[in-house]
Amino acid sequence: MSTPPPPVSHTTEIVIATVVGAAVGLISGNYFLGGVAGIVLGIVLSVGKTLYLDRKRRR
Rank of each mutant, 00 (worst) to 15 (best):
P6W: 05
G38H: 00
V24P: 10
T50F: 10
I16G: 05
S2H: 09
S2M: 05
T3C: 08
Y52P: 00
T3R: 12
D54M: 03
L41K: 00
Y31S: 08
P5F: 14
R58S: 15
G35V: 00
G25C: 03
V47S: 07
T3Q: 01
V44E: 04
Y52V: 01
V47G: 01
Y52I: 10
D54Y: 11
V47E: 02
V20H: 03
L51S: 05
I43G: 05
I14C: 05
H10P: 09
D54Q: 07
L45Q: 02
L45R: 01
A37Y: 06
G42R: 03
G21F: 05
T12Q: 13
V20M: 11
L41G: 10
G21S: 04
D54C: 04
L51I: 12
A23S: 13
P7W: 05
T12V: 14
D54A: 14
L45Y: 09
V36G: 00
V20I: 02
T11L: 13
A22N: 11
V20D: 10
I39N: 08
V8H: 01
V44F: 12
P4V: 09
I43W: 15
R59W: 04
G48E: 04
T11Q: 00
D54V: 09
V8T: 10
V24E: 07
M1I: 11
L45G: 09
Y52A: 12
P7K: 14
T3M: 13
F32H: 02
G48I: 05
G29Q: 03
T12L: 12
D54P: 08
S46E: 11
V40H: 03
G48A: 00
I16W: 04
G42I: 03
I43F: 00
Y31W: 09
R59P: 06
M1E: 07
G34P: 09
K49F: 08
F32V: 07
A22C: 07
V8F: 06
L51D: 02
I16C: 06
T18R: 02
V24A: 12
G35A: 08
R55G: 00
G42W: 08
R59K: 09
L53H: 06
D54G: 14
G34Y: 10
I14H: 14
L26I: 06
N30P: 01
I27K: 14
V8Q: 09
V44N: 11
S9C: 14
G38R: 04
S9V: 15
T11G: 11
R55D: 12
R58P: 08
P5S: 05
T50Y: 07
L51W: 01
V40G: 10
V19T: 09
G48C: 08
F32D: 14
H10A: 11
S2G: 01
K56M: 15
T11I: 12
V19F: 04
I16H: 05
V8S: 06
V15M: 14
S9D: 15
I16F: 03
L45P: 00
P4Y: 10
S46C: 13
V36E: 03
F32C: 02
T50A: 15
